[in-house]
Design a binder for these strands. Structure first.
Lengths: 196, 196
DNA sequence: CCTCCGCCTTAACCCAGGTCAAGCCCAGGT
DNA sequence: ACCTGGGCTTGACCTGGGTTAAGGCGGAGG
């Protein structure tokens, strides 16, 4: 077993027989990415995903009008991939970019479907993953509906302390749905008010 | 089979043996709700969900500060329930309220878990449902990130034409994340500009 | 050592949407 | 026919965040 820690993490979601995990490891490939390198670029078929072994990624959506917004940051132990597009069998609208030199474990969705045919545990895992992703998105929706940009910022750092120092400010802004200018203003206001 | 149309709809998501569907119908109970009646109220355990047979519902979240925001509208053929809370085994933070005299088919999550034990098709169905919910929430997130209130409004009516005339304006506003005042202004501006 | 570049900050101005408050319209009840 | 109340609109004013543009600053490369 090459990745025992990953195995354990997944096994907390659903019972996962070690021999099934062995099959998964057999089809997975490791990949290294340098800073700024893309794991997935817009237009690519959404036919692969990966687990982050080391590093941080951002999932960027470039809107038709050219604006960039950030759907998520992903660090160690988390999944990267154009999940929504994969489910809809479309090509990716999303770029997934390494913010640091990174290392990931890649699966082809096709190979994963093979695994699903072999044992129900993979379907159960896929269900858990879908459910978790849903819960996260719903939480984010909630934040857009009832919090101001400043409140969203505070919450962001509460929920992602491990990202501190690893992601540029402008990306935090793009994640919160504001410009870097607005974010800078918010931060300086807070600094000023905190010191008084 | 009491609900052949519903059966067909679900069978498009995943193969669903008729005898399994029969078991589901056996544990389901019909319920009628009058206008303004709550299917679920905040604080209730999230231990039941339903399919809308007739009517429209809104899923309302009352924030700690008292503001109401609307997570979704649900009409015929759609699911109602505190899905996120169910997955997290929490009690509901959400009220689900009938906007019209309505009629639904209720399942206890407990009974549904029984069905899951009996046949994998139910797990597969649950997976599809989770995935679909995810895709919808992600689309909504996207809209908050890159569209103005006016653009969200236009898109809302494009995507939910069947709700026209069935939901009060203020609820549309609460769904879009703005006040009813702002919505009214946007609409009058559009009327004015359209006539010119 | 200087320069360039990427990233952040600050300032000035603008606009969408919030807030508060006054009306309006109309359906339902008496 | 008259009230009443709920839901929508309108106006005046305020504020948060967008836009544009001008620096500041620290690190990499000449």
């Amino acid at each position: 077993m090459r990745f025992p820690k990953l195995f354990e993490r997944l096994a907390t979601l659903t019972p996962l027989p070690p021999e099934q995990w062995a099959k998964a490891e057999a089809v997975a490939k490791e990949q290294s990415l340098s800073k700024r390198e893309l794991f997935l670029r817009p237009g690519d078929p959404a036919d692969r995903f990966a687990v982050v072994l080391q590093g941080v990624f951002r999932a960027v959506r470039v809107s038709p009008r050219g604006g960039e917004s950030i759907k998520a940051f992903r660090a160690e132990g988390e999944l990267i991939g154009a999940y929504a597009e994969m489910l809809q069998r479309r090509s990716s609208m999303t770029a997934i970019e390494a913010l640091e030199p990174s290392h990931v474990l890649v699966f082809q969705t096709q190979d994963f479907q093979q695994l699903e045919q072999g044992h129900v545990c993979w379907e159960r895992l896929a269900r858990r993953v879908a459910e978790q992703h849903f819960v996260l998105k719903e939480r984010r929706e909630q934040e857009f509906l009832e919090l101001s940009a400043e409140e969203r910022l505070v919450k962001f750092w509460e929920e992602h302390p491990h990202l501190k120092g690893r992601i540029p400010q402008r990306d935090v802004a793009a994640y919160l749905g504001i410009t870097e200018v607005a974010l800078s203003r918010i931060m300086s206001r807070r600094r000023r008010e905190a010191s008084r």
